[in-house]
Design a protein around this nucleic acid. Sequence first.
DNA 1: CTAACACATAAAGTTGACTTTAGGTCAAGG
DNA 2: CCTTGACCTAAAGTCAACTTTATGTGTTAG
Lengths: 145, 145
Amino acid sequence: MYTIGQISEMFSIPVSTIRYYDKEGLFPDLERQSGIRKFSEREVEALRVIECLKASGLEIRDIKRFMEWTTEGSASYERRKQLFETRKEAVEEEINQLQRTLDMLKFKCWYYETAIADGNEDRIYEMLPDRLPPDIQKLYDNAHH
Amino acid sequence: MYTIGQISEMFSIPVSTIRYYDKEGLFPDLERQSGIRKFSEREVEALRVIECLKASGLEIRDIKRFMEWTTEGSASYERRKQLFETRKEAVEEEINQLQRTLDMLKFKCWYYETAIADGNEDRIYEMLPDRLPPDIQKLYDNAHH
DNA sequence: CTAACACATAAAGTTGACTTTAGGTCAAGG
DNA sequence: CCTTGACCTAAAGTCAACTTTATGTGTTAG
């Protein structure tokens, strides 16, 4: 059993944020001893799931819905699985998007390295849009539509 | 030359958002003809950069600073390159983080597939925390610190 | 005994990135 | 001529996710 302060330490999350999560219903079965929250391993795992679902782009109110499902036992296995499948696809798409962003950033790094070496952007303009060095051309094409 | 409506179409961004970007100073040299904004290829490329920097996690006020640098010509090449290098590292870190999130999600998908097959979570609890199938163990370990 | 801590609440405030609203100009079509 | 549609502005409103503030309780250390 942990206090809110210990959980805060453990996850490097402010105490106020954990109280906020509790207020929003993210710990449906959290116990209390004379008003004081007592966090068990169940809540520790819940917080890991909260961080995961948050990182996947889910909003607090939807995380709350999920946490309510966990109190229904085996009746909600299918819904819970569906949620994780959907989140998995969303994160895969997000990673793809970031990969394209990364290609644009790499292109811009090359762009300014070249501009610094030349003192101007003239030579780059002559190479644009389809006479760039092969590896750079790939980045450029991937990033520009 | 494009009107704000054409740019809105081109990028699938609301007109109000483009006006907001302009108000925030993201198009430092935007021309106007009797009050009406005229977007050139320069602004089209600027908007591509805005989307890229936004996706990299940069805030509007910092994107504004970058756009001001572009009006300084070759004097700011070094600063601009530095910014893209930093953003590149931030996005690489973000992708790593999302990869760990993805491993957690894949683990949870397996978890509920197994729970659905068994009708309960008993067998999973017996495998936790270090007797999981090898490929699943990898996901679990990667996701749990 | 009292001061310092860790805990608690309710309610108000903050932040960033938009979006909406209310009002106005101007050119073209029926 | 008058309505429609695309443009304009300034200012207020929205939303999610916290954070801060003001106030209070209960236990422990000097």
